[in-house]
Design a protein around this nucleic acid. Sequence first.
DNA 1: AAAAATAAATGTCACCACAACAATTATATA
DNA 2: TATATAATTGTTGTGGTGACATTTATTTTT
Lengths: 234, 234
Amino acid sequence: MTRYSRQTRMLVAVDCIIFGFDGQDLKLLLIKRGFDPEKGKWSLMGGFVQPEEALDGAAVRTLNKLTGLDGVYMEQLAAFGTPQRDPMERTLSVAYFALIDINLYKQQLTDEYKAEWFSLRDIPKLIFDHADMVHEAQARLRYKAAIHPLLFELLPPKFTIPQLQILFEAVYDAGFDKRNFSRKVLSTGLLVKQKEKERASSKRGAFYYKLDKRKYSAKFHAFLNFVSDPGNLR
Amino acid sequence: MTRYSRQTRMLVAVDCIIFGFDGQDLKLLLIKRGFDPEKGKWSLMGGFVQPEEALDGAAVRTLNKLTGLDGVYMEQLAAFGTPQRDPMERTLSVAYFALIDINLYKQQLTDEYKAEWFSLRDIPKLIFDHADMVHEAQARLRYKAAIHPLLFELLPPKFTIPQLQILFEAVYDAGFDKRNFSRKVLSTGLLVKQKEKERASSKRGAFYYKLDKRKYSAKFHAFLNFVSDPGNLR
DNA sequence: AAAAATAAATGTCACCACAACAATTATATA
DNA sequence: TATATAATTGTTGTGGTGACATTTATTTTT
């Protein structure tokens, strides 16, 4: 077979917007770019799509290379393809966003990428159009988490209702009534109460909960209305 | 400046999933592919992204080339990049879906593409992974239209409530109670009642409505809940 | 050992959205 | 004038939910 003549080929990359939650703030994992152009600047973790590699595969590989993690929640965000977004050479980037349990992330032994977590309220200047990607990812996270049980992906297997609420409040930068919040969350039927309590952050201690995996997968795409009026999100 | 050496470049295309509504069924606009491979087979309208062109620009250009239309509602669906999706040469495709008022579509004078409208329940075999794209677009349409005032883009400027209901029933392949439906739609405050009636499809005639453009743009991203339980959509 | 402090857990109430269901009205045709 | 047809408007009970208060378990303080 021949090829399509007279058409431009271009580089294709993936970039990962990696979210984590430290118990207080929503965080973003960034690296220091290791090659030119923009070497040494803050950047999303990314890489070029290889000849025999699917897009999702490239994203998984890229995430794993930085975090060492597998089986992480990840979804395609969008393709970014402005002609001059990479001044060196035309490069299309397919952005993915990932939600990880921040406790599972260990600084890789060889800290090859000089990665750091940044609070989303304090993101440094990023290369290319990475800031756009981050904003779009944050908007998407807010949108989806308002109606789907998504934020659990940011928590460890065992968590308390107050911890969950702090997470929601961090994501939406808003306060919620704790009575209504717990009622709403428990009414989904997704949570299984544990006998053990979390005793570090309060005198009385709060019961741990786990996700009911079966119901979780069943209801993941259902409309669950976690946040009343998420306002004008996208 | 130099280039990124030792990386694979690939072709980048856009493909358009174009929806229309003929008053009864939801339809899809397809063309007969004009070049090899798969010449003569049914296909989505698409084209390669040009050297100085943005992705959105390529999508707009491609849609316009087929329909002659501008200012059409269009959004990026996803990037499809399986290595072998085009057997000729590795090609990444960014899919866009568009909603057009089918009345505005005139068969272009030179019917260069041999385009035809197909009912979504009766789509012919498509080339490459275009069937996947269509399914994903349909799922996205159902998802978004359940909570945002999206389907108005498929209707002419003046329409009746019964027409709107038929459209919703076509999209969701379900029946809705007309009393609850009209109450729900009118309660959004997006519709302006006209004095004129549509008299073709009933004895009594149904009043025309128009969109309140101001409120429409304001509430486009709000959560409006047009469909009660859209089931397990994506 | 009792009191105070802290945060978790549970409870109440009024309102509104909405699904389920029925009646009325405007017009054309028989 | 009666009848058929489809549009329009109306009713009711229930569940979800936002606003708000109280009780309970535990540690710390006096």
